[in-house]
Write a protein that binds this DNA or RNA. Structure first.
Lengths: 212, 212
DNA sequence: TATTAGTAAATGACCAGTCATTTACTAATG
DNA sequence: CATTAGTAAATGACTGGTCATTTACTAATA
């Protein structure tokens, strides 16, 4: 009569499971308010076992962020040398992908946490800036610049225009996610995207003398 | 030979001094990482004395935010029924004021902290949203709507366009303040403002058929 | 059986909040 | 004006609870 063991040795899967659990909890309660025991419970593990895989609570957080950063950094670099398509299309595609991804609270949580804890983890924040922000900003700048060179956009300062591309997105996420605007008042991501893109492109377009 | 007293009774000034000290520390280290004793030291007081004026560390934080909210809420309400001036001018004036104010880290700290601690202080976050955000957004929406009604702006969705007004500002502050973009790469607030305003207004303008 | 994943309980640092005591100030009284 | 009794402000040692981390042990598995 073989009993089910009380627990199993699954050293392969544990680290990722711990990080998943930690992400969920950090996302909803923040780093400081999340106990190591909470993480253990959420991951279906005892507190002590966490320390077999991570040397401290801080390291859990850092690993978490680094795990999330890797694939993003890779993608951002690829975007830079995207197709020679109409830069307007490229921008819209990018914004669409971004808003879809970031509408998932689990994904938005990482940059949010990095921001929140930047003071306590300056190196981590620096890494995130270098690997994600810098590359993302550079990619968008490049697209805008190409639009200018091809005469599709007005000759604006591309570096500064990046803020006009990503800013409304950031504002939208901030307003809808963090301050939890009443559900009824939340405009759908699609509506927001249309509006933003319309205003953005109209703002970037030369309009030398009606061409529409 | 009269010695200077070790301390003085200054019950009038203490509360504000404590809040000032707390703001400085919360801004740089965050709420959780700031000890009550730190606040006391920064305010030139002993820990125990803090509790003569505030019943808990939480209350210090709440008082701090409420003190900062009051004047902003007042101003935001006034802005709504501003002069019948050209809405473009009104927007630019608003943006200028906003960026000047928010470039002061001490002022930016409050909304940042509210965001950071929204999870732990939901009521406070709610208050902030109602008193500051809602009013600010409403004011800008009104101005944009007036511009549309007067035929100065295209008939866009005013509510959504608000994100295009404030978003780039938020992005700018995020990038320059929180991720501490290398000093050299920080574009001056003036440059940013010019660029943003240029793109924004061009985006809102009808361009029905070249008018300059 | 040896090794390693895992548990549960112990440890100790840390810190918000308390309180007995001291000090600065104020006002009543002669 | 000098003395002193009364009070409010401020101190700082202390407490109790909360975790992050460590340790001593146990169960799974090769």
């Amino acid at each position: 009569m073989q009993q089910e063991p009380k627990w199993r040795r699954r050293a392969e899967d544990r680290p990722d499971e711990v990080l998943d659990a930690a992400l969920r909890l950090f996302a909803s309660k923040g780093f400081a308010a999340t106990k190591v025991e909470d993480i253990a419970q959420e991951a279906g593990l005892s507190k002590g076992a966490i320390y077999r895989y991570f040397s401290s609570k801080d390291e859990v957080f850092e690993s978490l962020v680094r795990r999330a950063v890797a694939p993003i950094a890779e993608k951002a670099s690829m975007i830079a040398q995207t197709s020679k398509e109409d830069p307007r299309i490229v921008l819209k595609t990018l914004l669409t992908i971004a808003i879809v991804k970031l509408s998932d609270p689990e994904i938005l949580a990482v940059p949010r946490l990095v921001l929140q804890e930047a003071g306590r983890f300056p190196e981590l924040a620096e890494t995130y800036r270098r690997e994600v922000l810098d590359r993302g900003v550079a990619a968008i700048e490049k697209i805008v610049q190409r639009g200018i060179d091809e005469g599709i956009f007005r000759p604006v300062n591309a570096r500064l225009a990046v803020r006009n591309v990503i800013g409304p997105l950031v504002a939208h996420l901030l307003l809808s996610q963090i301050f939890k605007f009443d559900a009824e008042r939340i405009d759908s991501p699609q509506d927001f995207l249309e509006s933003h893109f319309d205003l953005l492109i109209n703002g970037l377009t030369p309009h030398t003398m009606g061409e529409g």
